[in-house]
């Protein structure tokens, strides 16, 4: 029974990866097609009824959407399809193991990336951030590839230290926070590109003209990152409560605790930078990117190469 479910999960992961790859190509095509968009918008011609004159009208096109809708819509549809399979893979894995599917590095990567895509899809209801699809699908594809090739482990039962309700809460909220940090960092990268373009550099990246300006991107990144920061704060506290139960102390400067603290401090710095004269704009964007890099570092390098109590990679 377990093996059947695990094989379903594996098939679903590989299918999801294939579709994410297609979605990535579509998102990229969409961005490349946007190059011509502003020119096309200006050049729209309408013949008026009297037939004697042709009036050129500039049609105010919503940024990039009308010009390359096919690729973008296809990319979004593929992403949703891949995501359904992706969530299915995580669910099958969880049912196979009889617990939450995030007890080792493979499962955590599987679930956290599903949550990142979930956050990406959910925020579309609030803001049109489909242009981040290249980043999200690419990032998730790489993460899933590394997870299936390098992190894969068989389903094993939970060691006593992980048998706690806090496993559900602490790790889930951490992944949710990671999802918001990822999108915030992606927006910050686009913001930096946009700022470079505004300064006359980055001339090749003409699709930037169809995206929101640096200020708008900065505001959106900020809103993503403060949500991530709140979730991260909760993760840190929930982790401390759990550590008190399982390890007998709420804080012990374990390597993972140190890096969680560093990340918290970096994003606290980011929020302060946004309120400090001379630090708004590109500087705070760099802080956001450094902060997300620290999140990735914490999950990969610290898990695999640093000695500590969070030794649950299963590798």
């Amino acid at each position: 029974m377990t093996e059947t479910l695990v094989s379903y999960s594996t098939i679903a992961v590989y299918s999801a990866m294939a579709i994410y790859a297609l979605a990535f190509v579509m998102f990229a095509l969409d961005l490349s097609r946007r190059v011509a968009a502003p020119v096309a918008a200006v050049g729209v011609q309408r013949a008026h009824a009297d037939g004697s004159t042709i009036v050129l009208e500039k049609v105010d096109a919503p940024a990039g959407v009308t010009n390359a809708p096919r690729y973008l819509r296809a990319a979004m549809a593929l992403t949703i399809m891949a995501w359904v399979l992706h969530v299915g893979a995580a669910v099958f894995r969880g049912v196979a193991a009889g617990r939450v599917p995030w007890a080792n590095m493979f499962e955590f990567t599987l679930t956290a990336t599903a949550i990142i895509v979930g956050v990406f899809l959910a925020v579309q209801f609030w803001q049109d951030l489909r242009f981040l699809g290249v980043f999200v699908s690419g990032f998730v594809l790489i993460a899933l590839g590394v997870a299936t090739v390098n992190f894969y482990v068989d389903v094993v039962p939970l060691p006593p230290a992980l048998q706690s309700a806090w496993l559900v809460i602490h790790v889930f909220v951490a992944s949710l926070g990671t999802g918001f940090f990822a999108l915030g960092a992606a927006l910050s990268i686009v913001q930096l590109l946009q700022a470079r373009r505004a300064a006359g550099k980055a001339a090749g990246l003409r699709f930037l003209d169809t995206l929101p300006g640096a200020d708008k991107l900065e505001n959106m990144a900020y809103r993503m990152l403060v949500v991530g920061f709140v979730l991260w704060t909760f993760t840190l506290i929930a982790g401390a409560v759990w550590a008190e139960r399982a390890w007998g102390r709420y804080w012990g400067w374990d390597t993972k605790e140190v890096w969680t603290f560093i990340i918290w401090t970096l994003f606290a710095g980011y929020i302060h930078a946004r309120a400090t004269r001379g630090w708004r704009g590109s500087r705070s964007a760099w802080l956001a990117i450094i902060g997300f890099s620290a999140v990735v570092f914490n999950f990969t390098i610290v898990n695999l190469f640093f000695k500590g109590l969070h030794a649950y990679s299963g590798l």
Binding site: T255, V258, I262, T265, H272, A273, A275, R277
Partner: peptide, 23 residues
Amino acid sequence: MRTALFLLLLLAIAAIPGSLVPQ
């Protein structure tokens, strides 16, 4: 503000060595 920000970032950097070397 500037000092608070500087100290926050300094704190983040200062915490790193303790994760590289056993405590």
